[in-house]
Computed example of a mutant assay.
Amino acid sequence: MKKLLLAAVAFACATTLSIAQEQQPTQENLQVQPMFGGAQKTEEQQQKDEKFLTNCDKSFVNRQEASKFFVERGWEYLNEGQVDTAVYRFNLAWLLNPDNKDTYWAFGLVTSAKGENEKAIEFYEKALAYEPKNSLLLSDIAATYLKVYSEGKKKKRDLKKASSYLSKAVAADSANAFALYSLSRVKFYEKDYTDAWTYLHKGRTVDLTQIDYNYIAELTAQMPDPQGFFRAADAAPATTKE
């Protein structure tokens, strides 16, 4: 019952601001861009924001709780594939609490998914300022640096950044399989195929489901699996038994 009530309250708060934004075509477009596109708001738009905040103040214990609620709704919409609606909820969460690291983290993920990796890194950096030892966050920003490296001009500084963040991620959580797999990729790009296999196997012992078999094929083409777990022919596991 409490969740249903909160959902109704949140809907009322969000609708108040959404209706106002629909009256402002340019702002309606910006509402689905992280941090409302960073655009300077008109006095009328600022007044609408204040009305939204006031409504939330009446409905939630504090703005931190309200912000957390909207972030959770944002993840739900994102998991359903409703990206614009998700970003709008993340924006509302950010408006409620600009110090909520999860909003910047979400902006980073969404922006990276759109291929805007340099911009995504900026959002991740903002999130890291609040929680610099978060293993999952560290591995996400590292993965984005790897994208910049592999899809761009392959600058060594991007690879070094990725490696540095991944080392911190593993130091914070040695069971972070995503970080271990990403470290394998770093070693692959550095042509250190022995260590690439070492980190890959460390990752697959934690979580086999995250393996990218296209990457395995690339790695086996450079060096056969020293443990014989993956076949070179199709990069599939040779056995499921250790």
Results as ranks from 00 to 15, higher is better:
Asn214Val: 11
Asp207Tyr: 01
Ala238Met: 12
Tyr145Cys: 10
Ser139Glu: 09
Ala106Tyr: 03
Thr194Arg: 15
Glu125Cys: 02
Glu131Tyr: 08
Glu116Cys: 03
Asp49Met: 10
Asp99Asn: 15
Thr103Val: 15
Ser18Met: 13
Gln33Lys: 15
Lys191Met: 05
Arg89Gly: 01
Gln227Leu: 10
Gln45Phe: 07
Ala143Met: 13
Ser112Trp: 00
Val87Ile: 12
Asp57Ser: 06
Tyr165Arg: 06
Thr239His: 12
Phe123Pro: 10
Asp158Tyr: 15
Gly81Lys: 00
Tyr88Met: 08
Asp234Arg: 07
Lys2Gly: 02
Val186Trp: 09
Tyr181Asp: 04
Leu6Met: 13
Gln227Asn: 15
Lys48Arg: 12
Met223Gly: 01
Ala169Glu: 05
Ser167Gln: 14
Lys119Trp: 01
Lys191Cys: 08
Pro25Phe: 01
Gly228Cys: 08
Gly108Val: 05
Ala235Lys: 10
Leu136Asp: 15
Ala143His: 13
Gly203Cys: 07
Leu128Val: 04
Phe123Lys: 00
Glu151Arg: 13
Glu190Gly: 04
Val87Gly: 03
Gly37Glu: 02
Leu219Ile: 02
Lys119Phe: 02
Lys187Ile: 08
Leu183Ala: 00
Val110Ser: 10
Tyr145Phe: 15
Pro226Gln: 01
Gly228Asp: 07
Gly38Ala: 06
Gln27Asp: 03
Ser167Lys: 15
Gly115Cys: 06
Lys133Cys: 11
Leu78Met: 10
Gln47Tyr: 09
Trp75Ile: 09
Trp105Glu: 02
Asp173Glu: 07
Glu131Val: 07
Tyr88Arg: 05
Thr26Lys: 06
Lys160Ala: 14
Ala113Cys: 08
Asp158Gly: 05
Ser139His: 03
Ser139Asp: 12
Leu53Lys: 11
Ser163Thr: 14
Gly108Tyr: 03
Phe90Cys: 02
Met223Asn: 05
Val9Arg: 06
Thr240Lys: 12
Ala143Lys: 13
Ala142Glu: 09
Gln227Lys: 15
Lys126Val: 05
Leu95Ile: 07
Lys41Asn: 08
Ala120Ser: 12
Ser182Glu: 07
Tyr213Val: 07
Val170Asn: 02
Thr85His: 03
Tyr181Pro: 00
Thr144Ser: 07
Pro98Thr: 04
Lys187Asn: 15
Ala86Gly: 04
Arg185Pro: 14
Ile216Asn: 02
Asn62Met: 07
Ala143Asp: 14
Phe52Ala: 05
Lys114Thr: 13
Ala196Tyr: 09
Phe70Thr: 03
Lys191Asn: 12
Phe230Arg: 12
Gln222Ile: 02
Glu116Gln: 14
Gln31Thr: 13
Lys119Thr: 05
Tyr88Ala: 11
Cys13Tyr: 05
Tyr149Gln: 06
Glu116His: 11
Met223Gln: 12
Leu219Asn: 06
Glu76Gly: 04
Trp197Arg: 10
Ser59Pro: 13
Tyr149Thr: 08
Gln27Tyr: 09
Lys153Asn: 14
